[in-house]
Each structure stands twice: as C-alpha cells, then as structure tokens.
Design a binder for these strands. Structure first.
Length: 400
DNA sequence: CCTCCACAGGAACTGATGGCGT
DNA sequence: ACGCCATCAGTTCCTGTGGAGG
C-alpha cells in the first residue's frame, strides 16, 4: 500500500513532512492508552492474574467484531505482565498467531513453535505428523519451564481447519497442562464470530470458555477520539483539518466501526496530502484515500489469482450477469484460444464461489422453473479495472 | 398436481509434492 | 531405501431443489 521507495523519495523531495511519526499510523502499533477499553483490559488482566502467583490462569475467549482492539488489549496486558515477572525464574512466553494468515493447521503449529525458538532442525516445516509437532511444542515448554500463553487470533478459522482434518488439536491444547510437568500453557482465543462457540466440541467449550469477554463495537464518536489521539501523536500539529477527521470517522463508523480501517484511511490520506505537497490533510484527501484503498484491494486480489480463475473472471466480464453454464462454455472457449486444458464444471463452480467470497463478483441464486436453477454472477468492479490489470499478463493480453 | 430442468454444492477419492523418521 | 504424513489441486459421483410448464 505505501511503497517504501516512494516514501523515502517523497521525504527527500519535500524536505519536511506533515507526518512526524509513521509507526503510530500502523495498525499494529500499541498505544499507551487504549481508549474506551479500560474495563476490558481489567477483565483480561483479571483472568491472567494467577500467573503472578505461579499457578495456571484460566483459558480465555475474546469476542468482538474486527478492528475494535481485541488483539491490542490482549497483547498489551500480556506484555505488562511479562514486565512484572521478568526477574523471576518463571518466565512468561507470549506466543501469538493468526489463524487466517496460516493456511494449514500444520503451518499454524509451526509458527507457534518458531516463536518458542524451535529451529528448522527441531521443527521442520513439513514431513512430520501433526501429533509429533504437538509433542515437540509441549516438550519445549516443559524443558524451558515456560509459562506459555498461546494467543490464537481468528480462532474460528482454526476450528474450520481442524474440522477438515478431523484432528482435535484444540481439545488437546486446552488439556495440555495435564501433560506438562514443569511448564504451563494458557490459551487465549480471539474470535470475530460471536456464534462460533456453537460449532465447538462441548469438551473444548468447558475448558476454553472458562472466561469470556465480549468487546462491543465502536460508535462514530469513539472512532473519532481514537483517531484524534493517533493524529495528535503522528501528525504535525494542526495539519489535519477537522472536516477531514470527521469524514474519516463517518466513512468507517457507518459500517462496522473498524478502527484499523479508520487509521489506514487517515494514513493514506496523509501520504496523499504529502505527495501533493499540501501542508494540510483535507476532506478531498480522505476521499481520494478511500478510493485508492478500494482500488488497491481490487488490483492486488485480481493479480493474485491463478490462470484459470483469471479466465473465469474474463468470461464473466464478457457477459455480465450470466449463469454458471454460460460462464462455463465461455470459459471453455477462452481455454481453447490460450491453448490450455479446461477444468471440469464442478471445479469451476467451486472457483466461482471462492472468487465470490473475495468480493470481486456477486452471485444470486435463481430458480427458473423448468429451466433449472443457476447462480447468476455479476462483477462488482469495473471491467476497465480488469482490463488494466490483466493487460500485463502475457497469456491473457490478446483475449481481452 | 406432478415432472423435470440445470445446475448447487457435499463427500470421497487420486496423484503429485516434499520431507520426515528409521 | 522405505513407508509415512500433510497438503493441494482437481476429479468423480452424488443427492437436492424451486417453480414453469404440461
């Protein structure tokens, strides 16, 4: 999104910048005070408190919509506790992982292991049985006499991964303490999906859900104060106009109140203002930033698709609003012209729903009586965008 | 009221890849 | 050297279905 080369060049060109501290505008930055979240911080601390007494704290489940500070609060509390026990010989190890970023169960366990300082030799990235990986994790904790806290973000994705493979890793994680002699393991699950608990094994619920904390959504006012705080620290004084700030909060607050997106928005707006050599961030900049973020998302997801998905998107583009059957035959023609083997219709329907999930197309189920049922797909982005991004693709450029 | 279309979408399977332990 | 294990892309086979048209 923000190209480091551009950033450097701009900074040199301008000599001075209206953004004085860029790190603060990163969504991973943990501010000193997390606004509107004091009681949640207390609750998290409360359930992790037993660590100080060297006994095992409760497992914890944190719920709430995206971008409302769940991860921030959990990370902050744990690092505070870490500071307190630093000198004792009973160290706390924070291990964070995001299930969405790891595509497989194996990958997730390995990323946990890496943070426990297991190297390639001790924990290879492939080849082992899942149970073997798990055993090595526990061994490491036991040997190091660690108090490990596993923070698993978007744990609902993990549940999906597990249900595919049939392993009950979550159950084993929650019961791991019975297998540990010297260390301890605490599980903190973070979930966006408030109903996700229903999908869990009841045995897991009883131990994982020992404590539950629900984060409420931010409203527009709260988003605004959060933005204000970051702006104060990150921007040169008075360089963000009030209407711009309001618009930022309104654009985001109108949806789900995702603070991360608000912060992204003001950061991009700031960068645009800088590039235009303006010394103020205006409403216009925010509007532009909003568009730019949108387009960027579209472009990167278009680019990242494999060939057959791209062909499907082109097939839809040629006949916007067509049914699966029509798309499929159009796709087959495209395959012929580029000289590739075509895939089965089953695979194509699957790809279509995958693409739909990313938001580039939308499908609508239609029942046409004797003409059966189909899904009709439409593009949600402009065909110019598609042409523009696929033009550089060697195999595609002549069929656009 | 029944039939039958044109698919949706689940489940199980295959073959390839890559790397482990022994 | 061998069997094993996880994962991925893709295939095969399958059951299910709302309502126009007879």
């Amino acid at each position: 999104m923000s190209d480091p080369v551009d950033r450097l060049l701009d900074a040199v060109e301008l000599g001075e910048s209206i953004i004085k501290n860029r790190d603060i505008l990163q969504t991973t930055y943990i501010p000193n005070t997390i606004q509107h979240r004091t009681s949640e911080q207390e609750q998290v601390t409360q359930s992790l408190l037993p660590i100080l007494k060297q006994s095992r704290p409760s497992n914890l489940l944190v719920y709430g919509k995206p971008g409302i500070g769940k991860t921030l609060v959990v990370k902050k509390v744990i690092s505070k506790i870490q500071e307190r026990v630093e000198k004792s010989n009973f160290p706390i190890k924070l291990v964070y992982s995001n299930s969405k970023e790891e595509t497989t169960l194996y990958g997730l366990l390995v990323s946990l292991g890496r943070q426990l300082n297991l190297n390639e030799k001790e924990l290879p990235t492939t080849g082992l049985a899942i149970s073997e990986v798990f055993k090595r994790l526990l061994n490491k904790i036991d040997e190091g006499k660690l108090n490990a806290i596993f923070v698993i973000d978007e744990i609902d994705y993990l549940v999906q991964l597990i249900s595919k493979t049939g392993k009950d890793i979550l159950y084993q994680l929650t019961r791991a303490n019975e297998r540990l002699k010297q260390g301890s393991l605490t599980l903190v699950g973070i979930s966006n999906d408030l109903t996700f608990k229903e999908k869990l094994d009841p045995r897991v619920i009883s131990s994982l859900g020992e404590e539950e904390i629900v984060f409420t959504n931010y409203n527009v006012e709260q988003i605004k104060t959060i933005l204000e705080e970051r702006i104060n620290e990150a921007f040169v004084e008075n360089s963000v106009e009030d209407p711009a700030l309001n618009l930022c909060a309104a654009l985001v607050g109108g949806e789900h109140g995702d603070a991360r997106r608000a912060i992204d928005l003001i950061r991009v707006a700031g960068e645009i203002a800088e590039r235009q050599q303006s010394n103020k961030v205006t409403v216009e900049h925010v509007r532009e930033a909003s568009l730019k973020i949108e387009e960027n998302k579209e472009e990167t997801s278009l680019k990242s698709y494999p060939l057959h998905e791209k062909l499907i998107i082109l097939a839809i583009m040629k006949a916007n609003g067509s049914s699966t059957g029509e798309i499929y035959s159009s796709y087959k023609n495209l395959c012929k012209t580029v000289g590739r083997d075509e895939l089965t219709q089953r695979r194509i329907t699957q790809m279509l729903s995958e693409i739909e999930l990313s938001g580039i197309i939308t499908g609508r189920l239609v029942h046409q009586g004797i003409h059966g049922r189909t899904k009709k797909y439409k593009l949600t982005i402009s065909s110019e965008m598609i042409k523009k991004t696929f033009k550089n693709d060697l195999t595609l450029k002549d069929i656009i």
